[in-house]
């Protein structure tokens, strides 16, 4: 039983990381109908910003955190203007290719500027974790889980209760209609990119103390997060969270009870099963309706 609880905690912790990145995927997909393959690099860039401010410049952690997130907001604007906006009237394919290109550009730019050496980023708390009976709770994972819960609540409130959230929803559902109603579609998409960049950045900063800050940290998480969005249902906010958590738990238990080397295999096995038997995901709308 102790073992199960420990695995459950870790599974939820790592799943929450996937969920945070998956959320970024979903928001951009809803607004633009394209998958942003640079979403993982958003996390990586933010983690490096954190290293620059907190480690290199030695600024207080909270200040570095705020500046890094502000930096990510700006980054979202640049990304939107540089990658999405010029191609907005084209089909989804050139945009997807552009995001892949941006992802390669970003990781290699950071490599060129910062060098290939992985960096250490301290966690938010001084205590590494707490022992709760037989289960060890890593403080950083606790923080990640807490932030994920807060974000779920925030997203619900933001998208369902605020005018801006409703405008964003309207834009993602039908751009022409939204435009006719006086909503500035470009502004809404811009806001979506900013929000996604901040979310991805938040995930990167939170996970950096656990996984270290490295060029490839984003891509490994993004791959799983992408699988999580498909499992949860592409385009569904709740789906991304549930998909991410489910994936984290499934792979952790699969690794513990069946095979460690095939840990990643379980995640993708679940993905394949969903693609075959329920392509719309857990919460997703039917594919036919989207088309």
């Amino acid at each position: 039983m102790d073992l199960v609880l420990q695995l459950l905690f870790t599974g939820i912790g790592i799943g929450a990381v996937y969920a945070l990145v998956a959320l970024g995927f979903v928001l951009i997909f809803r607004a633009t109908n394209v998958v942003n393959f640079a979403q993982g690099e958003f996390s990586m860039v933010a983690a490096y910003l954190m290293v620059v401010f907190s480690v290199d410049l030695g600024w207080p952690y909270w200040l570095s955190f705020l500046i890094a997130l502000a930096g990510m907001a700006l980054f979202g604007v640049i990304f939107n203007l540089g990658v999405y906006y010029p191609l907005r009237h084209r089909t989804y394919l050139p945009v997807i290719i552009a995001t892949i290109g941006a992802s390669i550009l970003l990781s290699n730019s950071v490599l060129a500027i910062y060098g290939p050496q992985p960096q250490v980023l301290q966690g938010w708390f001084d205590t590494p974790g707490i022992q709760l009976g037989p289960v060890y709770l890593d403080s950083q994972y606790l923080l990640i889980i807490g932030v994920t819960i807060l974000l779920v609540l925030f997203n619900f409130w933001f998208f369902e209760k605020t005018l801006l959230g409703k405008k964003l929803q309207a834009t993602s559902q039908d751009k022409e209609m939204a435009s006719l109603l006086g909503i500035s579609v470009s502004t809404m998409i811009m806001i979506t990119f900013i929000y996604s960049a901040v979310l991805g950045g938040l995930a990167g900063i939170l996970v950096a103390p656990v996984l270290f800050v490295s060029i490839q940290m984003g891509s490994t998480i993004a791959l799983k997060a992408f699988a999580a969005t498909i499992i949860g249902g592409f385009g569904d906010v709740a789906g991304a969270i549930v998909g991410g958590l489910a994936l984290g738990v499934i792979e952790t238990f699969g690794a513990a009870y069946i095979s460690v080397p095939y840990k990643d295999g379980f995640a993708f096995l679940v993905l394949i099963a969903f693609l075959v038997f329920r392509p719309q995901g857990i919460f997703g709308e039917r594919v036919a309706e989207k088309a």
């Binding site: 420990q6 695995l7 998480i221 460690v260």
Partner: peptide
């Protein structure tokens, strides 16, 4: 274990 694992709890 497989390379580039994010978690080693198991």
């Amino acid at each position: 274990y497989a390379n580039q694992s994010q978690d080693f709890t198991p």
